[in-house]
Simulated scan of single mutants.
Amino acid sequence: MTTTDATAPTVGVDPGPLIRLTIADCGAKVLHSAVQLDVFTALADGPLDAAELAAAAGLHPRLAADFLDALAGLGLLTRQDGRYRNTPLAEVYLVQGRDTYLGGFIDLTNETLYGTWGRLTEALRTGEPQHLDPDKGGFVGDRHADPEKMKRFLKGLDAFSDRMGGELAEAVDWHGYRSFVDLGGARGNLAAVLVNRHPHLEATCYDLPRTGPIFDEHVGRLGQTGRIRFVGGDFFADPIPSADVIVLGHILHGFDADKSRELLRRVYDAVRPGGAVLIYDRMIDDDRSNADRLLSSLHMRLVSRDGGEYRIADCRDWVRAAGFTDGGARPLLGTHTLVAGHRPGSRHE
């Protein structure tokens, strides 16, 4: 039998935020479909009316009007006198061929999020990772077994690393350093951004050996062959190449605290005296109140057996425990945190 608490509020509480949260994934799926159908690229040369845009994107007329107007309502298109055009946000980030294009990242999230988050309730009850088999490469799943699938996966990551590399190039004073290693650097995209901004740097990408051919192809296409070297290995079993700076981007969130501390001790041994470690992730704010960061951590726990985001304070503790002096923390891209640590000693001694 259900009873009603007479003291519970029954009027004056707007359910709107709850309803919007309940259907929040609908807006995301509209964006994903628009990227897949290249709606924004179709508008790159100027506005189109509804029929022209529907024809260019291959939209069925039964759904086209609601779909296009929903994109306008989401702030991605504008509609004036029956003609649609991209908003500045869409024009910069959603037109294929632009250096700032984020469509690959959007495709990646569309591919990876829904299968796992649809199993959240099961994961909460069992504690087990969902959908992506941890025995086939952790949260990367079986993509390494399929080179074309892996390329699509990495293309999505490249859309992010282009922006992160540009911001990291400005956030750190690289002039006193001669070399860096991007740990888990995939096909070398972030390393390429850094050496383009700071040509004096010697760059190394360190990742699993099977990533080597994909690295060679991508770096060759970027015209960086010979400027960035690839070293294959296992973070925990093989020597980490020595350098002035070692970058760990989206690495520690794949491990638990003990493994993260172990890895940072190995990194300390590889950083030259006077050098630095740079760690970026969507770290959880120290009072654990930022919902976006906590959702990111939940995602890592859904797709990996030991992963999860970690508090900024915890990361700084791990850095100090490894032997580095604390270089502080700062925001990156508005969504990430950069924690730095410095190895005592004189550079290039």
Rank of each mutant, 00 (worst) to 15 (best):
P213D: 05
F215H: 08
F215P: 06
E217Y: 15
V219H: 07
V219D: 05
G220T: 10
G220R: 09
G223F: 11
G223S: 10
R227I: 09
R229C: 07
V231R: 02
V231W: 03
G232C: 09
F235L: 04
A237E: 12
A237P: 13
D238Y: 06
P239T: 04
S242K: 10
D244V: 06
I246L: 05
I246T: 01
I246Y: 02
L248P: 09
H250K: 11
I251C: 12
I251N: 10
L252G: 00
G254A: 12
G254K: 15
F255M: 09
D256A: 03
A257V: 12
D258R: 12
K259F: 15
S260V: 08
S260K: 07
R261H: 10
L263A: 00
L263K: 02
L264A: 01
L264E: 02
R266H: 05
R266P: 08
V267T: 03
V267N: 03
V267L: 02
V267K: 01
Y268P: 01
R272W: 13
G274A: 03
A276E: 06
A276C: 04
A276I: 01
V277R: 01
V277A: 01
L278F: 11
I279F: 05
D281I: 03
D281Y: 04
M283W: 03
I284D: 00
D286T: 04
S289Y: 02
A291W: 09
A291D: 13
L295E: 12
L295A: 13
L295V: 12
S296K: 11
L298Q: 09
H299C: 15
M300C: 07
R301A: 12
G307Q: 07
G308A: 13
E309H: 02
R311Y: 10
R311M: 09
D314P: 09
R316C: 03
R320E: 12
R320P: 08
A321V: 11
G323W: 02
F324S: 02
G327R: 00
G327F: 00
L332S: 03
L332N: 08
L332C: 06
G334D: 07
